[in-house]
Amino acid sequence: MDKAEFDRFADEYEQQHASNIRLSGETPAYFARYKVQDVAHLCTEQPPSRILDFGAGVGASVPHWSEAFPEASLTCLDVSQRSLDIARERHPGSADYCIFDGVTIPFPAGSFDVAFAACVFHHIDSEDHIPLLRELRRVLTDEGRLFVFEHNPLNPLTRHAVNTCPFDANAVLIRAGTLHERLRAAGFDRISLAYRIFFPGALSALRPLERMLTRLPLGAQYRLCAQR
């Protein structure tokens, strides 16, 4: 996780992201929103009171957390101080914005009910995945859950978007099965997988069908949910 790299792109992140995903027919806000809504859908029986947004960047998910869980406290963690400064300027008072050294999450064990990592791990060296997943497990409560969203390398449009994105220059996409194995190696239990985003904006009328396609490994992204 190269702090300098993320600091360099922070000010133009939103503009570059929007340009990079234009073929999808959607905005960055759409992709941020659907992820939080997925978490909310899976947490209806026991809404979290403490949420960790791991690799929160410039805070794209912050307003959606506030909407989905208005009573919950939100902590945004990132290695990029510039990204956190932008997030704080955009959403003052909506979260605690905390710097991360890339190794140790600066909170005691059992601090969070939900941890969330949206398209973060493809920026992290593979040898660091299991140690960081163990850290995420450590800061969850006994019944806490981790939600990891990643780009699906089996989707050709996703690969094109990543290969042409300046801030993804050093990204290494991860297959869902590989990340599933790393979650288990980190000690997580009850791991579920769902593939997401099958239809572009032009075909959004077909999106209600996506709930029947979650096992089809062709979605643009995938979601792993793991219990501590």
Rank of each mutant, 00 (worst) to 15 (best):
E5P: 02
G219D: 12
I105V: 11
C43D: 11
T158Q: 06
K35W: 02
E14C: 03
D142S: 13
A186W: 06
F199C: 05
A194K: 12
S61P: 02
P208R: 06
A169F: 08
P166D: 02
V114K: 11
W65F: 15
G177M: 03
N20G: 09
W65H: 09
E5F: 14
L74A: 01
C98L: 11
E143R: 00
N20H: 07
D125R: 10
L213F: 08
L132K: 01
Q46M: 06
E45R: 14
P108Q: 15
I197V: 13
I130Y: 10
F100K: 02
S80T: 04
R228T: 08
I124C: 00
Y30S: 07
F188R: 04
I86N: 03
M1I: 03
R138K: 04
E127Y: 12
E45C: 04
H91N: 10
G177N: 10
A87W: 03
A220P: 12
Q227T: 12
H160F: 14
E181K: 07
R82Y: 00
N163M: 14
R215H: 15
R137Q: 08
Q15A: 15
L23W: 15
A117D: 04
L23C: 13
G177L: 01
A29G: 10
R22I: 13
T178I: 04
R134K: 13
E143W: 05
G55M: 00
F147G: 00
G201M: 04
L74T: 02
P106G: 06
H180S: 05
V39M: 13
H180Y: 09
L179A: 03
A205P: 12
V39A: 14
